[in-house]
Amino acid sequence: MSSPVAEREKPVVADERLATPVVRRKSVGRPGRTRGVGARGLSVGKVAVQSSAVLILFAIVWEVAPRVGLVDPTFLPPLSTVVETLFDLLANGQLQQHIFASLSRALQGFAIAVVIAVPLGLLIGWYRPVAQWLNPALELFRNTAPLALLPVFVLILGIGETSKVALVIYAAVFPILLNTISGVRNVDPLLIKSARSLGLSPFRLFQKVVLPAALPTIFTGLRLSAAASILVLIAAEMVGANAGLGFLIMASQLNFQIPAMYAGILTIALVGVVFNLILVNIERRLSRWRVDPTS
Rank of each mutant, 00 (worst) to 15 (best):
Gly199Met: 06
Leu150Met: 15
Gly246Leu: 01
Arg24Gly: 11
Ala53Val: 15
Asn179Gly: 08
Gly158Val: 09
Tyr170Leu: 02
Met1Cys: 12
Val118Arg: 09
Ala243Arg: 14
Ser51Ile: 13
Ile249Phe: 02
Val130His: 09
Leu138Phe: 12
Ala106Tyr: 09
Leu270Gln: 06
Arg35Phe: 11
Ala137Ile: 03
Leu286Thr: 11
Asn143Thr: 09
Arg196Phe: 00
Leu178Met: 12
Pro78Met: 00
Gly36Gln: 15
Phe247Ile: 03
Leu90Cys: 08
Ile99Arg: 01
Gly246Ala: 01
Ala39Gly: 13
Gly221His: 05
Phe110Lys: 04
Pro136Phe: 00
Gly160Met: 05
Val61Ile: 10
Gln253Gly: 11
Gly160Ile: 02
Thr220His: 07
Ser80Gln: 11
Leu245Gln: 00
Asn281Cys: 08
Leu224Gln: 13
Val83Met: 11
Ser3Ile: 11
Ala235Cys: 10
Ile258Ala: 01
Val71Ala: 05
Leu254Ala: 09
Leu254Asn: 12
Ala269Pro: 05
Leu57Gly: 10
Pro119Tyr: 07
Arg24Ala: 14
Glu16Pro: 15
Val22Gly: 10
Leu123Cys: 09
Ile99Ala: 01
Trp62Gln: 04
Leu215Cys: 06
Glu84Ala: 15
Leu222Cys: 04
Arg67Gln: 08
Phe247Pro: 01
Ala117Arg: 02
Gln207Thr: 10
Arg105Met: 12
Arg142Asn: 02
Val168Ala: 06
Arg33Val: 11
Arg67Ala: 04
Val232Asn: 03
Val82Leu: 06
Phe87Ser: 05
Leu198Val: 05
Val118His: 08
Leu191Phe: 02
Leu231Gln: 14
Leu215Phe: 03
Ser43Phe: 15
Phe256Gly: 04
